[in-house]
Every structure is written in structure tokens, then in C-alpha cells.
Write a protein that binds this DNA or RNA. Structure first.
Lengths: 157, 157
DNA sequence: TTTAATTCCTACTAAATTACTCGGGTAAAT
DNA sequence: ATTTACCCGAGTAATTTAGTAGGAATTAAA
């Protein structure tokens, strides 16, 4: 079962994209600033997200990334799956060869858990997250700070 | 979120204990043979399980481990928690300081997921697992093989 | 047409974690 | 006494994560 910073970063970045939808492509530099994720690392994650056709890119100045589908059509499980291998709690990638070719004592338990997690995460779309109160609050804080930094930067120039 | 071989081994070993309950203490060597887990590694895991008072030990010849509580009173979440730090999907150990002291955009999502996983695993006791068909089948295979090996060993001596 | 912004791509690396091994203890039964 | 088993701490190889580095390709705008 892998659910580490990698998967969390991916979901966070995708949610950032969903929140700033309709303003043209969003650059990874913006996401990096807002979410505090290293730019190079974001590039690697978005390479995978693009392969899975969850985002599309626009190159050149003013370019960036956009969701390839509507935010209601992208769920959290898809995003995590795109960057991790899978939301899988078994040790055998569900093959059932966990104990020298045969299934181990707890194989079905981990299969059930995997199903549970996948069911939960696939039931939550980016659109669902966007309208959540806690997400709105944090997003406002992040956008506010970004604006603040812009003002500070323009003053000092 | 950590759910790796470590946690799976712990649950498997505890289930082995539950399956062979009432036959006196079970040695780690037996569990190692049946479940294909390194003996030394099992020792480390059982040190933690003992600290959490999930098992008790009997030293000396004929010794081993027994469940400290009834198998119905021990759930899978407790076992995983005993060896991993926790079944926690957040990156901040639920402290909410994920983004430079404040909560990150997806904090509540991972809190919810953690709750979901914990709820699922804490709803399954060792006793529940023991009576499952798939567990029974594998247990029979494992016990059968152990007996077979005994016969082969006695023949070659 | 140059410049700058941006994605794209590959390789490398530091830190952490996992999944062990090793070597010696300590307690208790025979 | 000897053996069986738990107990304990240190060390280690492999893997993964998280991130760096450097550059090439693309394209909008100056």
C-alpha cells in the first residue's frame, strides 16, 4: 500500500488546477509557489498525469496545464493511481502468489481493504473537493498570500 | 500511509496464533515455517506486539507466544498500529501543520481516508478472520504441508 | 528575430524506510 | 547442564521517496 507524499502532492496539484480552472493554462511554477511543492518534482508527476490523460499541456510562455476532463469526471483514485503504481494493500499486486506461488493467509483481507480504499477515493471527484468548505478556506488563504507577494514584489521594483 | 510487508506480516502472524489457539504457546519458529517469515524479523515484530499487550510470551523449552486477549477482542487495526506507527494517510500525523505550519489543501481528505481505513480494519477481529472460508482453506494447506514435512523428516532420519 | 517562459526529458543523488542478518544475551524445562 | 526458546541491540543491503541538475524543444511576445 503506497500512499505517500507523491500521491498527496499529485492530488493537491490537481485540485489546485481544478480551483483555478477557466483562467487559461496554469503553470507548474504557480502550483509550486501556492502548494509548496518543488517545481522539478511537479514536472515528474505531471509527466505521469499527462500519460494517463488527466491533464493536457500548453507549451511556451503563458502555457501550463489544464484538466483534460471536467473536474467532475476525475476522481481522486485515478490521480493517485496515475503517480503511484496503485492504491493496493496486497503485497502481491493482487496476483495471489504471496506465499511461494500460492495465496497467503491474509490475502483476501488485503484485497478487501484495497477495494474499500479504492471505493472511497474513486467516489470523490475533484469537483466534490472544490466545493468543500475546508478546501475553499485553504484556497483563499493561498490565493491571498500569492496576491500579497505580487504586491510586495511590485513595490520593491 | 504505511501498509507494507511489516504490517501484513504482523497480522498474518497474529492470525496464525489465533488459528492455533488452545494448543499452548506457539513458537516463532513454527510461525516462521508456516508463514514464510524470517525468524529474526518475527522477533522484532513480536517485541512491539508484546509492548502493546496484544500477546504474552512463555520462555524456555515448549515456550512461545499466546494471544493476551481473546481473538474477538483484538482487531486488525490494533495489530497494524502496533508495528507501524499508525494507519494514517496524512503527511502531518494529523497535526494539520502540513503546509508551513498551516493545513494543506487536501488535509481533510486524508483525514477522512484515514478514518475510513481505520474504521474498516478496526471492525475486523482476529476471530472474524479465523472463521472465514478463504482463511480456513489456506490454514489447512499450511498445516498439511507442515505435517508432510514432519513425515519426510522422520523418514530421512 | 531574439528573448523569455514554459513544458519536456533523462540522469543523478540524498535521505529514509524496509526487511532483513548477526551475535550475543536471559529464562526455564528436562 | 544442556537445550529450547524468548529477548535485545547493532548493523546492513535493497528499495523507495523526494528532490536536484542540466539541458532540449516549443512558442508567445518584445
Amino acid at each position: 500500500m503506497r500512499l505517500t507524499t507523491k500521491g498527496r502532492y499529485a492530488v493537491t496539484a490537481m485540485l489546485d488546477l481544478a480551483l483555478h480552472q477557466g483562467k487559461g493554462p496554469i503553470s507548474l511554477a504557480d502550483i509550486s509557489d501556492r502548494q509548496g511543492i518543488s517545481l522539478s518534482y511537479l514536472e515528474q508527476l505531471f509527466a505521469k498525469l499527462r500519460k494517463q490523460e488527466l491533464v493536457q499541456s500548453v507549451r511556451g510562455p503563458g502555457g501550463g496545464y489544464e484538466l483534460k476532463r471536467d473536474s467532475a469526471q476525475i476522481n481522486v483514485a485515478q490521480v493517485v493511481d496515475a503517480v503511484n503504481e496503485s492504491v493496493d494493500a496486497t503485497g502481491c499486486q493482487q496476483k495471489g502468489n504471496c506465499q511461494s506461488g500460492e495465496i497467503c493467509l491474509t490475502h483476501h483481507l488485503w484485497m478487501d481493504l484495497s477495494g474499500q480504499i479504492h471505493g472511497f477515493l474513486s467516489g470523490i471527484s475533484l469537483a466534490d473537493l472544490v466545493v468543500r468548505n475546508d478546501v475553499q478556506t485553504v484556497a483563499q488563504r493561498q490565493d491571498g498570500r500569492a496576491t500579497e507577494e505580487l504586491i510586495l514584489a511590485s513595490r520593491s521594483s
